[in-house]
Write a protein that binds this DNA or RNA. Structure first.
Lengths: 230, 230
DNA sequence: CCGCATCCGGGGCGATACTG
DNA sequence: CAGTATCGCCCCGGATGCGG
């Protein structure tokens, strides 16, 4: 991208990752780890293939990404973030958290969805209320592939993928699952909205916030004024 | 900007603030508070005036910015961030912190500089080692207008502007001041690089980091694993 | 001066087609 | 599977004009 020409940390950062699609590529690589070109395309619906190739080259040139030729069983090129690229995680966390209010109204008519994109809401809203108890795993099925929420030492982690024996499984529309994760919907209400729930409700209750999260309204003022947006 | 069309918190955030120049406008408003159109132009060297007007409209439409007609003594339009806009501060902090390594090499030949842009390095590197002692103020003069670093209750704050009786004043090239703030340069070494220092050296030593900050190299690999979200 | 609007050239972007 | 190639369009950048 064209440089801003400013000797400023923020401007220099945007010189590197300010291009369209760039941070979303980093998102995919952070959420899913090393990816093939096709995996990236699938996780980035709407991107033009030449742009993806351009961005990957640029990210590689900036030292945020490495290309790795996988051995014969895979026989494919893998793209993986370098440590410098992984250092963008706090940036994406901050931006993702800031963007959560825009998800409350639900997806636009033509919005695409991938399950792993629930990672930020999950890690933001959830907390392990019983850190000493055995860890639990909850599987989410809102899009195509599954996502897993796991407790570990009191923290709650979200990752793309599946797990062997989940303590609970939630299936349904993304915004309904979002409502459950944020605590705005209890299980019966979510069932009325089409949620399918299997497993141990206590596993879910263990990680759910005790009160609805206050960040969910776009016009929420920090002074504590919390009204619903839709 | 054109929407990414993805039901994802990060993508939704970038739909709002992903446009070129947008986050830099937010930067200026965060660093300097309410600004006139001309102040913004001056703090955003390189922006085309029509783009600034476009972005201000978009930010206003998105509820991140408000227009305020100042009474006759000023008789001008002031642009001010709304609370929602101010909530972007953690995002800019994360991005600015990530971008600091790119400043180590010094400005490119054609880079513009404004003093207030040192705010992120200052707040990142500095800490008050004597929180109980009376507060100190250090003035930086690297660009056009001055900037002040102040201790308050153990925290270190940076803001654009001046102060009545600074405990110390640093004047010099931006990257030299950056070296002093990060602890990589001591005063004699900085003087050799053109730094002009007046006042109490203990005031500076009080806020300087004891050791050079480890984040200053672009290729710095984190020793263990990525750091936690901020 | 301040806060834009208009015009215009160039390039980044988006969509599709094609290839080793 | 991992990209090129191509083409239109619209965003961006730079200059200028203009009403309050």
């Amino acid at each position: 991208m064209r440089s801003y020409g400013q000797y400023c940390a923020l401007a220099k950062a945007l010189d590197v990752v300010g291009d369209r699609w760039t941070l979303l590529i980093v998102r995919e690589l952070l959420l899913r780890g090393a990816c093939r070109y096709t995996d990236l395309r699938n996780g980035l619906p709407g991107i033009a293939t030449n742009l993806l190739a351009d961005r990957l080259r640029a990210l590689e040139g900036a030292g945020l990404l490495e290309r790795e030729e996988a051995p014969p069983p895979v026989a494919s090129t893998l793209f993986r973030l370098t440590p410098r690229g992984e250092q963008l995680k706090p940036v994406l966390n901050a931006l993702g958290r800031w963007g959560i209010p825009y998800m409350v109204a639900g997806p636009d008519a033509e919005d695409e969805f991938r399950n792993q994109w629930l990672a930020w809401p999950a890690e933001l809203f959830l907390a392990d209320s019983e850190p000493a108890a055995p860890p639990v795993a909850i599987e989410l099925r809102a899009g195509e592939g599954p996502m897993v929420i796991e407790t570990s030492h009191g923290a709650v982690r979200a990752r793309a993928g599946s797990t062997e024996h989940p303590d609970a499984v939630l299936s349904g529309a993304p915004q309904v699952i979002l409502g459950v994760l944020s605590g705005e919907l209890d299980l019966p209400a979510a069932r009325d909205l089409g949620l399918h729930f299997e497993g141990d409700a206590r596993a879910l209750a263990r990680v759910q916030p005790p009160d609805p999260h206050p960040l969910l309204a776009v016009d929420a003022a920090p002074a504590g004024h919390a009204d619903r947006a839709g």
